[in-house]
Design a protein around this nucleic acid. Sequence first.
DNA 1: GAGGGAACGCAGTGGTCCGCAGGGGTGTGT
DNA 2: ACACACCCCTGCGGACCACTGCGTTCCCTC
Lengths: 150, 150
Amino acid sequence: MYISTKGRYGTKALFELALHAGEGPQALREIAARQGLSEHYLEQLVGPLRKAGLIQSIRGAQGGYVLGRDASDITVGDILRVLEGPVSPTECALENFDFSHCCANPQVCPDRDVWIKVRKGIEQVVDTITLRDLVEDWQSNVERAPVYYI
Amino acid sequence: MYISTKGRYGTKALFELALHAGEGPQALREIAARQGLSEHYLEQLVGPLRKAGLIQSIRGAQGGYVLGRDASDITVGDILRVLEGPVSPTECALENFDFSHCCANPQVCPDRDVWIKVRKGIEQVVDTITLRDLVEDWQSNVERAPVYYI
DNA sequence: GAGGGAACGCAGTGGTCCGCAGGGGTGTGT
DNA sequence: ACACACCCCTGCGGACCACTGCGTTCCCTC
Ligand code: FES
Ligand code: FES
């Protein structure tokens, strides 16, 4: 039931970009160091994120990454869908499910409604929390407990 | 992000037991056939379910399985926790997390609150839906569309 | 225009889990 | 005794995870 590190690392990386938005491009090396991640593994994750338009890359020396959209326009769900695939407990709980997989006769499947409710419960959370929210929450937390992470 | 077939098959099996509660022990062969599952694979799943007390086994000829508790006292979450492990998107979102894993400094982790909210969103669904609910919903569905599954 | 920083890309690797299948053992009704 | 059905261990091909290694391309700086 756990999501993989892809989703977590990706969220951390984009949080880092949101936190330092407006300070020029952020190099992966810096992001990885600040969040304690493997730089090279992170490289694999930013590829899909760039292709999805969530981030933008600046090549060459002093290059790095910036957010592709405003921080208030990127949700955690956006990141998870790129790196983890559909945000759903089962395939049959997806919007446009074609009834050819999963149960033999899904029209009367006793469980499908459960999985759909779970999906909506997850979406309710990840689609409403933006990077901007994360930054604001973190800053107000730091105010109360000013312990900077490594 | 998908849960595995363990959770789905287990839920289906226990739904079957709830549906035929009071009709004596149900053999795995019957359950597997009615739900279109591999009988032998199902055997692996019922072991943990029995040890967790969710079902009870009757050995010998004409044996089978019955629910260990009343159908209204078994939630989907109970089943998932036995077969899939903790119902949580990350380890750090669990109730009694000891802060030694996951982030370097989780006290100010920007993401942990998100994962906790996701966990609570999932729990809100799976801990409130009981087997009895599934049976009732299914019976009223059959009334509207009387197509019995295989 | 040379140097070097940093983004790209591909390939491999040890580990874990999934979704079974096979085969045997054990207890119990008829 | 026999059949039935639970019980348990083993193996196995495949997929994914979490990296690591290495080379290439781009482009700013000196
Ligand atoms: S249709 Fe997916 S569990 Fe039944
Ligand atoms: S403490 Fe788990 S993501 Fe930070």
